[in-house]
Amino acid sequence: MTLIAEDVLLLLLDDGSGKPIVDSTKLPRVLAGALVLELAMSGVLRLSEDGEHVAGRPEAGRIIKKGRLLVTDAPPPTDPLLRRVAEAVATSSRPMTPKRAIEKLQKGLRDDVASRLVEQGFVGERRGKILGVFPTTAWPARDKAYEAGIRNALHGVLVDGLTPQPRLAAVVSLLCAIDAVGKVVDDADRRAVTKRAKQIADGDFAGAAVRKAVQDVNAALMVAMMVPVITAGGSN
Rank of each mutant, 00 (worst) to 15 (best):
Thr2Asp: 15
Leu3Asn: 07
Ala5Glu: 05
Ala5Phe: 04
Asp7His: 14
Leu10Gly: 11
Gly16Leu: 15
Gly18Val: 03
Lys19Met: 05
Lys19Arg: 14
Val22Phe: 02
Leu27Glu: 01
Pro28Leu: 07
Ala32Asn: 09
Leu35Cys: 09
Ser48Met: 11
Glu49Cys: 06
Val54Asn: 05
Arg57Ile: 15
Arg57Lys: 11
Arg62Asp: 14
Lys66Trp: 10
Gly67Cys: 02
Asp73Thr: 13
Ala74Gln: 10
Pro75Ser: 02
Pro75Thr: 02
Pro80Ser: 05
Leu82Gln: 11
Ala86Gly: 03
Ala88Ser: 13
Lys99Glu: 12
Ile102Gly: 05
Ile102His: 04
Gly108Ala: 07
Arg110Ile: 07
Arg126Leu: 09
Val133Ile: 09
Phe134Arg: 13
Phe134Asp: 06
Thr137Gln: 08
Pro140Asn: 08
Pro140Cys: 07
Tyr146Leu: 06
Asn152Val: 13
His155Tyr: 12
Gly156Ser: 13
Thr163Phe: 03
Pro166Trp: 04
Val171His: 09
Ser173Asp: 10
Ala180Arg: 02
Gly182Thr: 00
Ala188Thr: 03
Val193Met: 01
Lys195Cys: 00
Gln199Pro: 09
Ala206Gly: 11
Gly207Asp: 02
Ala213Ile: 02
Gln215Phe: 08
Asp216Tyr: 10
Asp216Ser: 13
Val227Arg: 12
